[in-house]
């Protein structure tokens, strides 16, 4: 694996990802450059048995964004999805699990799917979802809880490939 190929394959993904997290486009470019400097430094230590290249590069990018929030005096709070101190779970983060999530979401009702995507992908609070959808707060909360319950069942079920590992 060489740095040029990694840069070619992942530069746009990394930059778009960072732009989705960081408001200032110049900061995003700087952080992206830092990411590939780190990728270059750590390339010799990369172990394909521990994680796919995609997951590895994503982890470096994610940590670079977290460092940006922690070391710079920025007014905005670190995004919730990055606030956890949990290590990135290499087993969880792969294309197959994303496909499985897509299939599981399709099995929810349309309203449950909307609440899950608005809350966990768009980052809206349940209160914001109430305003966005015109549903009552109680209805939003009910759909949120029932969707999570259903997703937990779907993800702990058996598939042709074997048991999902998300839970």
């Amino acid at each position: 694996m060489d740095i040029e190929q990694v840069y070619k394959d992942y530069h746009d993904k990394v930059l778009n990802y960072i732009r989705s997290k960081v408001g200032n486009p110049e900061d995003a470019e700087d952080i992206c450059s830092d990411v590939f400097l780190k990728v270059q430094k750590k390339l010799m230590d990369y172990d394909e048995e521990k994680a796919s290249v995609s997951t590895w590069v994503y982890t470096i990018a994610r940590n670079a964004v977290i460092d940006h929030y922690r070391t710079r005096r920025v007014a905005e709070e670190i995004p919730e999805e990055l606030a956890s101190d949990d290590e990135v779970d290499n087993e969880l983060l792969n294309k197959e699990t994303l496909s499985e999530l897509a299939e599981a979401l399709k099995k929810l009702s349309e309203e449950e799917r909307e609440v899950i995507i608005l809350h966990y992908y768009e980052g809206l609070s349940l209160k914001d979802i109430e305003q966005r959808t015109g549903l009552s707060y109680g209805q939003v909360k009910l759909r949120h809880n029932s969707a999570l319950k259903e997703l937990k069942k779907l993800f702990s079920g058996e598939t042709a490939k074997g048991t999902f590992r998300i839970v």
Binding site: K13, V14, N16, Y17, S20, S54, T55, Y58, A61, R62, E80, E81, L82, S84, D86, V88, D89, L92, L93, K95, T97, L98, L101, I116, Y120, Y121, L148, L151, K152, F155, I166, V167
Partner: peptide, 16 residues
């Protein structure tokens, strides 16, 4: 727990 995992997957989806 499932909510946090879904949040992490969606974050990875923004990349992948």
């Amino acid at each position: 727990n499932i909510g946090n995992k879904i949040r992490k997957l969606f974050d990875f989806q923004r990349f992948e």
